[in-house]
Amino acid sequence: MSAATGGSGGLPGDLPERRSEFYRTLEGLRVQGRVIHALLLRELQTRFGRGHLGFLWLFLEPLLLAGVIGLLKSLMQSREMGNVPPFLFVVVGYAPYFAFRAIINRATTAFQANMTLMYHRQVRLLDIMLARNLLEMGAVTCVLVIVLAGTAWITDFSPYDLPTMVFALLLMFAFANGLGLLVAAGAARWEVVDRIVHPLTYIALPFSGALFALHFLPARWREILLWNPQANIHEMLRDGMFGDQIPAYYDLTYVIGWVVIVNLLGMAAVRAVRAKLEF
């Protein structure tokens, strides 16, 4: 029989060999994938109940909102859209913005609402955020696919450059994700964040370039708006959708820089706030 020796501070000699860092990272990724999958399903259930209509509502909500605004705009025939179908213009602009806003707004309560999950070691704060964000992204992607497939079928209008569009959408999601992480961490730390984020997402709408093309703005205003990475992303989305029909203005390097920085800060903030959370 061997008495354990904990005195020296090092590991006792008979501890089982720890598996390699690489193996643990791989195993960790597998667990993380499983957890995010479980959280996704759980998020669906808690948000919409088990009814199938609730599940549908996830797609219907952005689809209806974008559709109504799109129809209104078609009736008004404003000039900021060039010669493209106003309905498509609005859906392509508004649906991603909807996802963005949903991710940011819901981030404020992400941790409070899920503190009970923290009792499971393998559920990390980042997983909760990722699961929620993936849900929003998936919903909006579905909306876009439905709308684009529908219009392609009915009117023979298909996206000009699909890879660009997909890439822009991914950038939008990544940007929203990073910002959402920051907001979630901030809201967990300071209550003010929760209160200012909601109005901010509304104020930000005109500056996001979601509902008008920068081409129809004066050069000076365009330059100012292009400081906003979101405006760049929306321009890129429209570039992928409409191609030459509306000249697009964006700086891909700038956007990627923002996305990377925001995600880095977001992940770091979530890690930092982990210890401060009480449950």
Binding site: V31, R34, V35, H37, A38, L39, L41, R42, Q45, R50, H120, Q122, V123
Partner: peptide, 11 residues
């Protein structure tokens, strides 16, 4: 549903 969730995250 809680049971399903636990089952999923604990594999």
């Amino acid at each position: 549903d809680n049971a399903r969730f636990i089952a999923r995250i604990y594999n």
